[in-house]
Design a protein around this nucleic acid. Structure first.
Length: 428
RNA sequence: GUGGGCGUAGCUCAGCCGGUUAGAGCGCCUGACUGUGGCUCAGGAGGUCGGGGGUUCGAGUCCCCUCGCUCACCCCA
């Protein structure tokens, strides 16, 4: 049991160099795209007051918090998502910031739940938010960032798609069928389950939420394969529905104008589990549908004021590294781990070591990565080490070379050798 | 939280009906080989067979418990 007690905690990952390189590759794409869209990076503490999440994130998240009481008797939780922290941070300083605020972050998030494919107890999530702009152009901008993040990693419309909807449109449709505001959450929950539960069961749930008998079938059909046109056919002309529909269509049109139309489809069954969403919501899925959602987001116009800040509209998304990593590996988009140094210095005879160290340090000072054997080894051994370290070039310093003030430089790719003056190397 | 499958070397795995000292390939280390890497050859290290208990003359193998991994459910960052 001794050895076991030092193993990794379930649901947590180690990142040996190859895995860290893969993670860094993903982060780099995320940062590149976020900056391309003019977003600034921020971060916050991994531990927050428990209250920040209770009743603001939704039941599911609160039930799976990594929460405990700290030594100062504070109820705290490891952050399960970034948006509440963002809201808290902005509550303190948003008034002084020019709007709209474009911020992004790559926090490590935690949830206490049983792990399975694509779900661990810890993951890194790219969060991108626009705060202070209520227009649909901001919603489109945010989804464009998410799509471009995946494109930057080599994925195209054949690999993934964005399913978009709008809670305001859902509300308009549902209230036109008799659902009262009090029953709206139940109705959303029923629609959220439409792909996973039998039709009759969903129908019963909808009826329980207040959907009138005459509309039940139309609602079910619409949400099972419903796009914008189907919604207009079934519920167009009803007050409020038309204007909500027009906004969603404008949203899709903006993305089309950006050239991203191939990625986007309206799917009214997308609801999102989090309690704070108020408008357009979206999720990104792999085309084969074998993986979980890669990314989810939407508009949350009430959250900032609910944590005591300025009443600012906001829209954003979160994209986790776990499912995305699986998709990239599945599609052969994971880069090979290229290790290697620029130079490996070989000495023939320890008498040459001090000169070699001087050269090595000069090369390192000039920015090159340099390795050499830390102990006396045969030339063969040193070459083998150079090989396994992935050195691009080997510099050989033996008694002959030292006497003449030169080094033999061997290109490890071509095997070609030439002499270089030590003074030339030291000059950089 | 519920149910199924799987745990043998760092990795991938073999191990017959329960039978002597648990194996292979790859990787790692050493040597052949202190003036040149990839190849070859020889040798070596590395295992409480996930852990505990039980049955048995005898358990990697059978039984029970437990831990871990994994898939599905619940749910979904």
């Amino acid at each position: 049991m001794t050895a076991q007690s030092f193993s990794r905690l379930p649901g947590f990952r180690d990142f040996p160099p190859e895995d860290l390189a893969f993670r860094a590759h993903i982060f780099e794409a995320w940062r590149t795209v976020a900056r391309r869209y003019g977003f600034q990076e921020y971060d916050g503490p991994p531990l927050e007051a428990l209250d920040l999440y209770v009743e603001k994130s939704g039941e599911e998240i609160v039930g799976q918090l990594y929460a405990f009481t700290d030594k100062g008797d504070r109820e705290v939780a490891l952050r399960p998502e970034m948006t509440p922290s963002l809201a808290r941070i902005l509550a303190e300083r948003s008034r002084a910031l020019p709007k709209p605020i474009r911020w992004f972050s790559i926090p490590q998030l935690f949830r206490y739940e049983r792990q399975q494919r694509g779900r661990l107890r810890e993951h890194f999530q790219w969060n991108v938010d626009i705060v202070g702009e209520e227009g649909v152009a901001a919603d489109a901008e945010v989804l464009a960032v998410a799509i471009d993040g995946l494109r930057e990693l080599g994925l195209g419309p054949e690999d993934f798609r964005a399913r978009v909807s709008d809670r305001r449109l859902l509300s308009a449709i549902l209230s036109s069928t008799g659902v009262e505001p009090a029953g709206m959450d139940d109705a959303f929950a029923a629609i959220d389950k439409i792909e996973r539960e039998p039709r009759e069961r969903v129908r019963a749930r909808l009826a329980g939420a207040g959907v009138g008998e005459s509309d039940a079938d139309a609602v079910l059909t619409l949400f099972q394969d419903g796009g914008a046109e189907a919604a207009r056919e079934a519920f167009g002309g009803r007050e409020a529905v038309d204007s909500e529909l027009a906004r969603l269509e404008e949203y899709v049109a903006i993305l089309g104008a950006m050239g991203l139309g191939a990625f986007v489809e309206v799917d009214l069954a997308i609801v999102r589990g989090l309690a704070y969403y108020t408008g357009i919501v979206f999720e990104l899925f792999d085309r084969l549908g074998s993986l979980r959602a890669i990314c989810g987001g939407g508009r949350y116009d009430r959250l900032l004021e609910r944590v005591g800040g300025e009443a600012l509209p906001a829209v954003g998304f979160g994209m986790g590294d776990v499912v995305l990593g699986e998709l990239l590996r599945e599609r052969g988009r994971a880069p090979g781990h290229a290790r290697g140094v620029d130079d490996y210095l070989v000495v023939i005879g320890e008498a040459q070591r001090s000169v070699m160290l001087r050269v090595a340090h000069a090369l390192r000072s000039s920015g090159r990565s340099v390795l050499y054997s830390l102990k006396d080894q045969s030339v063969r051994k040193q070459f083998k080490a150079a090989e396994s370290e992935g050195a691009a070039r080997v510099l050989v310093l033996g008694p002959d070379e030292a006497a003449r003030g030169v080094l033999v430089a061997r290109d490890m790719g071509t095997g070609l050798e030439e002499e270089i003056a030590i003074t030339a190397l030291e000059a950089g």
